[in-house]
Structure formats: C-alpha cells, structure tokens
Design a protein around this nucleic acid. Sequence first.
DNA 1: AGTTGAGGTAATTGGATGATTACTTATCAG
DNA 2: CTGATAAGTAATCATCCAATTACCTCAACT
Lengths: 223, 223
Amino acid sequence: MVKKIVRESGARPARMPAAERRELILQAATAVFAERGYSGATTDQVAKAAHISQPYVVRMFGTKENLFLEALDRALGKLMDSFRSVIADYDAGRLAGKVALLDPDKGSSREVQLKQLMSLAYADLVQDRGILLMMMQSFIAGHEPVIGACARDGFVGIYRLVRDEAGLGEEMTRDFLAHGMLMNTLISLRLTDLYETNSAVAELLECTMGAKLPLLFASGKAG
Amino acid sequence: MVKKIVRESGARPARMPAAERRELILQAATAVFAERGYSGATTDQVAKAAHISQPYVVRMFGTKENLFLEALDRALGKLMDSFRSVIADYDAGRLAGKVALLDPDKGSSREVQLKQLMSLAYADLVQDRGILLMMMQSFIAGHEPVIGACARDGFVGIYRLVRDEAGLGEEMTRDFLAHGMLMNTLISLRLTDLYETNSAVAELLECTMGAKLPLLFASGKAG
DNA sequence: AGTTGAGGTAATTGGATGATTACTTATCAG
DNA sequence: CTGATAAGTAATCATCCAATTACCTCAACT
C-alpha cells in the first residue's frame, strides 16, 4: 500500500482560470526575462516568480521561446497602446493641462509637444521595470532566428508609430528613440545604484531623466 | 596493451606562445559574446571560433566569467583609446584636414567638432562588429554581480572621458551616448537585414548612420 | 640523446535545465 | 451525488555545458 500523500505546509496555490494564470505568468516572465535575458532566464525562475510549478509554465506556453515571444508581444503592445493613447488624447484636446505645464509659452509645435508627452509616457512605463527591459533584451537578441525577427518587427513598428502616427518626422524620431535607448541602458545597468556615491552618475541620471528621475527609483514596485 | 593513438586527419593546430593565443581567444570570445550575450555563449563556441579545444579556453582564463571580463576590458580599452587618440590628434592640429571636410565653414566649436570626430571614430569601431556589441551585452547585464559592476565602471569611464577629456559637457555627452546606444541597438538587431525590403528601415539607418552606413554593411570582415 | 616544461587535447563529470509523463485534486454541469 | 474536465504537481529524462583530470607532444636546453 502506497502511503497517501497528504499535502502539508499550507502553501497550496489558489486555483484560477487559465486566462488569469496566463497573465500572472506573463508578468513574472517579463520581470525575469527583463533582468536575465532570454538565455539567462530559466523556466523555473519564471515559475517561482509566478508561485507555480515549472512544468505548468512549460505546458501552458509550449516552449521557453514561445513564452518569451508572448511576453515580448505583451510588452510591445503596452508601449504602443501607451503612445497611441497619448496621441489620441492630445489630438482630442484632453491633454491641454499637461501641455500647459510642459510648455507654458505654448510656443512649441505639435510634434515637439507630442514628443515631450510621449517621453513622459515612456518614463511612466519604467515603473514596471519589466516592460522596457524586456524589449531591450529582445533588441540585443538579433541573432536568434525567431525572436530576432519579432524584435525587428517590433522595433520597426515603434519607429513607424512615432514617425507617422505621432508625426515626428525622421530626425526627431531618431532622437526620440536614441534617448529611449539610453534610458533603457541606464536602467538595465542599474546605474541608480551609484547615484549616491558617484556625482558623475547623479549628473548623467538627472540630465537624462529630468523630472522623471524619481520614477526610476520607485520602479519595481508597480505591477 | 593500449592502442597507441595516432593522430590522423592533419588538422593539428599550430603551436604559439601563450600571449599570442590569448589575444586570439579574446578576439573569438568578443565575437561570440557580442552575438549571444554572456549566458547565451558557451566556452565551446569560443573555442571553436578560436580553433582550439574547449578545456584550453577554460584553463587559460579560469572561468567563463573571467573570460567575459577580460574581453570586456579589451573592448572598453579599444573604445577609450580610440576616443583619446581623436582628442589628442585634434588638439595637436593633426585632424585639420578631416575637420575641413566635416565642417567647411569652420563655424563649429571645439566640442561640436570633437563630437563629430568621435562619432566617426565610433563608427569605425563598428567594423569589428564585436567591440561595440560586447560592451552593449555588458550594459544589459547589470544584474550580474561582478560583470554588472565592471559594466557600470566602464560606462561611467566613457561618460567621464567624453564629458571631461573631450569637454562636451553634460547635455552634449548625453546626446552623444544616446546616439551611440541607438547605433548599438540597430546593429545588434541586425536591422541591416531589412534594408533592402523595408523603406522605413532604410530611412532610419541612413538617418542614424549618415555617411557611415557603408561601414555597417562591411562589418564583420575586419579583425 | 635525454629531460623538462610549456602548449595543447581527449575523456569525463556533475550540475543545471527544458521538456515529458503520469499522476492528483478541485470545480461544475446535469 | 457523480462524472468529466480543467488546474495543477511530482518525478524523471535527455541534453547541454563549465569545469576537471589525466594525459600527449613538441621545442629548447643541457
């Protein structure tokens, strides 16, 4: 007679519908992939972060690669949704108050104002700490056959959105993306760790993030 | 009696002094780490790229982590040497010809001219394809205890060099770094693969790389 | 010629890790 | 109450990979 296994030490996870669990796993995967990259992350780390067993992660997404792709898609979607809603709100006049704060003289063109607003939206996304770094990890995985292709598509999609939908034009879009990449790098590098002890770092962070710097220190807390 | 192993199929590697072999391995490691990142690369891939055995790679550098650190150090050194020699040459008046080409009116300040010259030097480094991507891989490994710390030091070193030794000041240095990060991203993403088929990509590449775009397509051939 | 040490490899190992299999258990419709 | 199905796990496998061990073999110097 095999001894009946009695579940001890309470930590039994709550059951929930698959769709809901899916989102939790994607959140966990985003955080783990963001820190460790595609190769550096393990499905077990994702499972632990989602408080669930490793086999379930694999079974729900098929492969680690597919999990990464879905997390990437989710991150890209959040970024683009955020930008699109900025554009829509701006064009509907719903951001007049914010614009007045950023640009009291109202001397800037639509593009310049939109650029500032999207920078703000971008910095807001930092609070998740996963979303942006997840994308960054995909951008340097260009050599991976499938992930690389999706990353390229995603990047081009962002370029088109900023250049055409927001209407920033070539050079302004390039500069916008460049500063985004610098922000991503500073965050991923964890330069914030040196903020107190290194005045050059403090200067660079303040100069790059501007008023949005506090968001960086608060990052990681939001879901 | 154990059968004497006779070396067949000639491919026996040439012997060479350890210091020389070391540099070859570092070159190979730079290329491999640049493409696949720290976690994604294997010591065996480095060994194959250097045409030697995997155990020898490990024995010569102790650990994979240490190999990465030495390759990173080498890459950072090359970049900073390159910038420093631009600065020295400029201040010694040895770049008058180049400056005249970039800035026919001679209307720009020292900082602006130096910035352009350093951008040029940066783009020259692209030809290796390993140097810059190696650094980029280290920048997104901020969570690794040892590698992350070295990457932070390296980044801050570059910032100081550009801001203080070249004298670009805060904002200009920030913009310089931002565009460098964008270039790194475009290269790592292999957006060049889409240059022919995607006009938005062609536009972005031309806008970002300017006259230096051909260097990008020629990259990977140099040692 | 013989020894020695540096340059190198084959074989192996132990741990990690993505994936699979075979279960268990909760929930809910009838 | 009772299947049936969906949610979830334990155990295990096969593979990969960094690191170790135990060698081999030239070249240089007595």
